[in-house]
């Protein structure tokens, strides 16, 4: 009850910040607000694209949830998403005459493994030498984003493309579209299934149990005989793996190729999604939809009016601020008591 109230209030305050910013900066605030709130529902195209936006966010949200559940801060999601997608796509481009489904499954596994491997480095460094995983994962991520950019600008650039991007993969590999004319693709079902599985695994599996215990009190876990270092590495690896898959699903569903910087923001927003969902894998789904709604609403509104699409980022940042402000409710209560 109390938690729900906090979550609702968080959203309300953040939206109020957004409405205020729109009202202050737009020359036609009424129009801008109307499109901001209703835009994503105007037609199948906008609606489908909003859902499409949520798909990678669900995966990065799950990725962040799992790491946070083990009290490991994986801040390298951005790089894991990007590099997972690059690795999978490059493999997809070089795999020749194999059945399409096999290629599709293989590249998803590869992106999963690559993302997982990257994050496991930080997990290992933390377990072995207590290197702060928050900073190390971030530094690895910055490094890989630059290397990924260099790959797409150089050796893997499709010279026919007008921008830094790889060649297109065979269109047969790509997920089928399910709501024309929008980009919405069948990857949605895969992602929803993964969310349900992660939910069950965290609650009821042995590893899920070990992750929860390690995350809630690592000394207790170690005292009781859980191999907490291994658990931290595994949690980081699974987190990175889901992030890598997020990039690949986006490529397979929407772009058909990797474009430089296509996944920018997926990781950070995934972290915010996980925090709003309070690490609950099922709640990650509505939280990701809400984030997608904010971005889409701002986009549609800036399309029809002079509103800046950055409004979405400001609202998202406000949510970020408020989301763990545990003292907020008591603070407001005290204020009310003081004023009355």
């Amino acid at each position: 009850m109390r938690k729900t109230l906090i979550s609702l209030m968080t959203v309300a305050i953040a939206l109020a910040v957004g409405v205020l910013a729109i009202a202050l900066t737009s020359s036609s605030p009424r129009e801008a607000l109307k499109y901001f709130f209703t835009g994503p529902f105007l037609n199948a195209y906008f609606f489908g694209n909003m859902i499409t936006r949520a798909i990678p966010l669900i995966l990065t949200g799950l990725a962040a949830s799992i790491a946070f559940s083990a009290s490991a801060f994986n801040l390298g999601l951005e790089g894991q998403v990007y590099f997972g997608a690059i690795a999978g796509t490059l493999l997809g481009l070089t795999m020749g005459s194999v059945p399409v489904w096999l290629t599709c499954v293989t590249i998803m596994i590869v992106s999963f493994a690559v993302g997982g491997g990257i994050a496991a480095i930080s997990g290992y460094l933390k377990a072995k030498w207590k290197v702060n995983e928050l900073i190390s994962s971030l530094l690895v991520s910055y490094t890989l984003i630059n290397i990924g950019d260099a790959l797409l600008e150089g050796p893997f650039r499709d010279p026919r493309a007008g921008l830094a991007a790889s060649s297109y993969m065979d269109s047969a590999i790509r997920f089928p579209r399910i709501l024309m004319p929008s980009n919405l693709h069948a990857g949605l079902f895969l992602v929803l299934a993964i969310a349900v599985f992660v939910f069950l695994a965290i609650r009821f599996s042995r590893l899920g149990y070990e992750i929860r215990i390690t995350g809630s009190n690592i000394s207790f876990g170690a005292y009781a005989g859980i191999h907490v270092r291994k658990v931290v590495i595994l949690a980081m690896a699974i987190s990175g793996a889901l992030a890598g898959l997020a990039g690949m699903v986006d490529v397979l569903g929407v772009h058909g190729r990797v474009i430089r910087g296509f996944s920018s923001g997926y990781g950070w927003n995934g972290i915010a999604v996980a925090l709003i969902a309070r690490r609950n894998p099922i709640l990650v789904i509505p939280a990701a939809l809400f984030f997608a709604f904010l971005t889409s609403g701002a986009e549609v509104s800036s399309f029809f009016t002079d509103m800046s699409p950055e409004i979405a980022r400001i609202i998202q940042a406000s949510i970020f601020y408020l989301v763990t402000a545990e003292g907020l409710l008591t603070f407001l209560k005290k204020r009310r008591e003081a004023t009355s």
Partner: peptide, 12 residues
Amino acid sequence: NLKANVFVVGLA
């Protein structure tokens, strides 16, 4: 004051 996680506030 609001007891929010300092990492999360930093990210914000």
